[in-house]
Nucleic acid binder design. Structure first.
Length: 295
DNA sequence: GCGACAG
DNA sequence: ATCTTGTCGC
């Protein structure tokens, strides 16, 4: 009984397993917090309102200093071998103050919509390890290479394969999502922000639609465009991080950080298209591979 | 049948 | 994600 391996290598994933995943996502989502809930405050903005009205309140509260980033890179030869990397940056210097990597053999293939079941376990290990190893540098907020709320709870692929209930498909499609950033945030009980480099189609949002609305409103400047789905809820924001960036990044709430705050935090790293914590995690993950693995 | 599909 | 060279531009 050989299954069709041409469907992007998901042949050994059973519908039962996917159902379990969906249940896990549902149960974890009950613990999800989409508002600001952290014990630090954002640093004063540079160019904007220099003297805010909310700045001088509690001088006891610490200011955000350590922002983390996580990413995985993969072996060229063996697609099952990956390197997971966690970095922490000091926002006052933008320097990497902590770095740790781990090479692993992946057990689970990439299934669109269920990235967390492939990548979250390793990343959780790295975080847990750091909690005992370098607690003083532990990130106050973590930027994740993947989506948060901007995520289809159940991709069309599997639902349409499992049944033909159009109404069921519709309802699932429109339910709010729970991507890798949410998944990690809840399990690590850590504020997280989802950063996507590509838009995962959800709730009627497509790349072409984003472009259309943008062109209707004028030229793509370095700015922010809210991503509002057909259901009317704001699932995230497209952000052009560089003056000359044609392609935006897609920010969404992970855990314990509101979208406006997430945007402010991303703006602290406006040098490249991809925010520095994730960019550094990506770079160092590949470097680590070349020094240890079979590149 | 065709399109869609985070990393 | 990964396979891939040069090249146009700030």
């Amino acid at each position: 009984m050989e299954e069709d391996a041409s469907t992007s290598g998901n042949s050994n994933i059973s519908p039962q397993l996917v159902n379990e995943w969906i249940e896990i996502q549902d149960s974890l989502k009950k613990r999800l917090i989409t508002d600001d809930e952290f014990d630090w405050k954002l640093p004063p903005m540079k160019d904007q309102d220099s003297e805010g009205m909310e700045e001088n309140q509690d001088s006891n509260v610490e200011i955000l200093k350590y922002v983390g980033g996580v990413d995985l890179s993969f072996s060229r030869n063996d697609s099952l071998i990956a390197c997971a990397t966690l970095v922490v940056l000091d926002i006052s210097t933008l320097e990497v103050v902590h770095e740790d990597s781990s090479i692993i053999k992946l057990r689970i293939p990439y299934v669109p919509g269920f990235l967390a079941f492939r990548e979250a376990p390793v990343l959780l290990e790295l975080l847990k390890k750091m909690e005992t190893t370098s607690p003083t540098l532990y990130p106050q907020v973590l930027m994740v290479d993947g989506n948060g709320l901007l995520h289809p709870r159940a991709p069309f692929l599997w639902i349409s394969l499992l049944c033909h209930y159009w109404s069921l498909l519709k309802s699932l499609e429109r339910s709010a999502g729970f991507g890798l950033a949410c998944h990690l945030g809840v399990l690590a009980d850590l504020p997280t922000i989802g950063i996507g480099k590509n838009l995962h189609q959800v709730d009627g949002l497509t790349q072409s639609r984003v472009r259309q609305v943008l062109e209707a409103n004028g030229k793509p400047r370095s700015d922010i465009f809210p991503l509002i789905g057909d259901s009317g809820s704001t699932l995230g924001a497209a952000m052009w991080t560089t003056k000359s960036s044609l392609k935006p990044i897609f920010i969404s709430v992970g855990h314990r950080v509101s979208l406006p705050s997430a945007i402010k935090i991303v703006k602290l790293f406006g040098r490249f298209r991809v925010p520095e914590p994730i960019r550094q995690a990506d770079i160092r993950s590949k470097d680590f591979f070349r020094k240890h693995g079979l590149s």
